[in-house]
């Protein structure tokens, strides 16, 4: 039997989770106020991911940086590798909110997309 304490980061509630993994591989969770708590805990304890938000360089625009985000969670250990790739990109207008800036970054299946119009 294993016990873990986590803070759920799904939403601003920040529930304090107490997770028990039983001998036969069952998951017991306490402290969550919605069902997303369990899926968060399972992911966080096996393959944690994070949404990455940052900017990319812009040319030929009044705006000097374009805000971007990952379309889904990126494996935690690949965040800085992803940053290094994103930092090499320069974009120019026109760009629409949601446009893909980098497709399938680091083979994660996750895209880096624009967070605003340019």
């Amino acid at each position: 039997m294993e016990k873990h304490n986590l803070i759920c980061i799904n939403c601003p509630m920040g529930c304090r989770l107490e997770i028990t993994i039983t001998e036969n591989g069952g998951w017991l969770i306490e402290g969550n106020q919605c069902k997303r708590g369990l899926s968060y805990a399972q992911k966080e304890l096996t393959a944690p991911t994070r949404t990455l938000t940052t900017t990319v360089k812009v040319k030929n625009s009044l705006l000097r940086r374009l805000p971007v985000k990952s379309s889904d969670g990126i494996p935690k250990e690949k965040i800085f590798e992803a940053m290094a790739l994103i930092n090499q990109v320069t974009v120019e207008p026109p760009i629409s909110i949601g446009d893909i800036i980098i497709e399938n970054i680091l083979d994660t299946g996750v895209n880096i997309i624009s967070s605003r119009d340019l």
């Binding site: 601003p12 949404t51 938000t53 805000p67 985000k69 967070s115 605003r116």
Partner: peptide
């Protein structure tokens, strides 16, 4: 530019620029 906006109003997690948009 970080995310976490809109969970109440739109029931999804948006970045600041997306929420403003």
């Amino acid at each position: 530019i970080h995310n976490g906006f809109g969970l109440h109003v739109f029931k999804e997690e948006l970045t600041g620029p997306e929420y403003a948009h």
